[in-house]
Design a protein around this nucleic acid. Structure first.
Length: 511
RNA sequence: GGGUGGAUAGCUCAGUCGGUAGAGCAGUGGCCUUUUAAGCCAUUGGUCCUGGGUUCGAGUCCCAGUCCACCUACCA
């Protein structure tokens, strides 16, 4: 890169230099920031250093060294330079990765003139390997006194603001790596998510559930009532759908002899995006032969409490705002309340609710209950609306809603003493449905009529292969679904699903 | 789909009644051997989201649009 100051005013020279630094690419003009990094890249090459490094064997990760610190230990650590405190001939830098950071003391006389010249070409954001010896500084900070430096990668772009972090949600979600570099809270949330998901697998495996993988590309998208994503297989010449649930395949496995089985993976639903909805989301479904919905409720209760105790320091889950003030406390103490649907409705809408005529119920919604309803709603939907607005949204501590009307849940077994309700639970925590659990319907004739009723005219939506499988006999079984993203949100206090999904779906950004 | 709020330096944000565009951080240069957002001094950096309108004059007022956030609607 050359500047020709004799031919142009200073700022014009500045611009042309910045443009050539971008090597003809169309880059947002960040003034001299990019230019200076390119200059240092060139300078490193002139010094005979490969700016993008090669092999460097470490003895410790920065965070691990920090945690198991000992004096006068010869070490090799590597990481990204996330802070650089330049005191002239002495510099303090922080080397960081996802797991933590370590301070490095770099002194001109210690490393020698040659390494010092290389060091002066480094910026915040560069990756560096350091060989040296541990010591504690005058201010008590565990550090590594650098003896030699290995450049592992030059960063050509400046990192986000170190104090404010990444605030811009567009950058946070579209360039998650910057969010992970800059925001400790994000690192913490994802570390927690990863650990919790691993623990859920372990929890089920410890109870002899087998993890399986069933088709995500399905011919007939079943197991839920949601709009699917459509796609097309060229060689087969057929429409396919991304699954909305794995349920019908897991039940086929029950027919095949699996007695405890689960799948923890993505489902896809072609619906709106919101704070609580991502089009692809992670779902756990588990089936347990010979069990019923109450045993499934016990299992879920145990699992979530286990996670809370292991990762949240107990069963009181505190959600905090940005100022660190507790805004909400969820009490997961057992046993969790289990209440029939109708009792919950009576509790908020009056003991006589189910004695009223449909017209009277609609009038009561519009009047004293203040629940918005529309004329197109079926009668049972009016009651469901009361449930959602007055029970579900106000329920913070765990609540198992049981004996749900069968219209709401077509894939579960009817109760033996009251055939208007089904043997299911719906677990509500923090105002949201976290998990449904069923005593699964395994009568092939009843299942067929329910699916036909649900499909209406669209008979192609009926999964005939699934019904065929049921005719061979599916053992009675309990089944659950758990919305993993929502459990993580509930346990961590994350306010948006986008904060606990690494790469959430966003609208395409036009140039 | 509907409603409300927002968009100013690379980042975080001020910007008065309509009258020449501001700060901190980052960057750059210099001095200094122990810093923790953090040494000190100096300094560079602007499509005020886009387009139109009103005006002698618009970051500021009006209209339209784009994008974002929140609420709402849809949603097993």
């Amino acid at each position: 890169m050359s500047e020709d100051k004799s031919q142009a005013p200073a700022d014009a020279a500045e611009n042309s230099a910045a443009n050539s630094a971008a090597a003809g690419e169309k880059e947002p003009d960040m003034g001299s920031l990019l230019k200076f990094r390119r200059q240092k890249l060139d300078r490193l090459r002139e010094l005979g250093v490969d700016p993008f490094g090669a092999k460097f064997e470490t003895t410790h990760a920065p965070g691990a060294l920090q945690a198991n610190f000992a004096e006068e230990l010869p070490v090799k650590v590597a990481g990204r330079i996330t802070a650089l405190r330049d005191m002239g001939n002495t510099n303090f830098i922080d080397l960081s990765d996802l797991g933590g950071r370590m301070q490095i003391f770099v002194n001109k006389k210690q490393v020698g003139e040659e390494a010092w010249q290389i060091f002066k070409q480094l910026d915040i954001g560069d990756w560096l390997g350091v060989e040296g010896e541990t010591f504690t500084t005058r201010t008590g900070e565990p550090s590594v006194k650098a003896q030699s430096l290995t450049v592992l990668s030059k960063s050509l772009r400046p990192l986000p603001d170190k104090w404010h972090g990444v605030q811009d949600t567009q950058i946070k979600y579209r360039q998650r790596y910057l969010d992970l570099i800059a925001n400790e809270r994000s690192r913490e949330l994802f570390r927690l998510r990863i650990a919790m998901v691993a623990e859920m697998r372990r929890f089920l495996q410890d109870r002899e559930f087998l993890e399986v993988e069933t088709p995500m590309l399905q011919d007939v998208p079943g197991g839920a009532a949601a709009r699917p994503f459509e796609t097309y297989h060229n060689a087969l010449g057929m429409e396919l759908y991304l699954r909305i649930a794995p349920e019908l395949f897991l039940k086929r496995l029950l027919v095949g002899g699996f007695t405890k089985v689960f799948e923890l993976n993505r489902n896809f639903r072609n619906e709106g995006i919101s704070r609580r909805h991502n089009p692809e989301f992670t779902m756990l479904e588990a089936y347990w032969a010979y069990a019923d919905f109450e045993q499934m409720a016990d299992l879920v209760e145990e699992m979530i409490c286990h996670l809370a105790e292991k990762f949240c320091g107990g069963l009181l889950i505190e959600h905090k705002n940005e100022a660190g003030e507790v805004t909400k406390t969820i009490n997961l103490s057992r046993p969790w309340k289990r209440t029939p649907y109708r009792d919950l409705i009576k509790g908020v809408a009056g003991d006589d609710w189910f004695d009223l005529t449909n017209e009277e119920r609609r009038a009561k919604c519009a009047g004293e209950l203040g629940v918005e309803i529309s004329a197109e709603m079926e009668d049972y939907e009016v009651t469901q609306q009361v449930f959602e607005k007055l029970v579900e949204e106000k329920s913070i501590d765990p609540l198992y809603v049981t004996h749900v009307p069968k219209e709401l849940v077509p894939l579960a077994k009817q109760n033996t003493s009251d055939d208007s309700v089904v043997d299911v639970y719906e677990l509500v925590i923090n105002g949201a449905e976290i998990s449904p659990g069923y005593s699964e319907l395994n009568d092939p004739d009843v299942q067929r009529s329910r699916l036909e009723e649900q499909a209406g005219e669209e008979t192609q939506k009926i999964d005939e292969d699934f019904l065929l499988a049921l005719e061979y006999g599916m053992p009675s079984a309990g089944g659950i679904g758990i919305g993993i993203d929502r459990v993580i949100m509930m346990l961590t206090g994350a306010e948006s699903i986008r904060d606990i999904v690494l790469f959430p779906q966003l609208k395409r950004r036009d140039a």
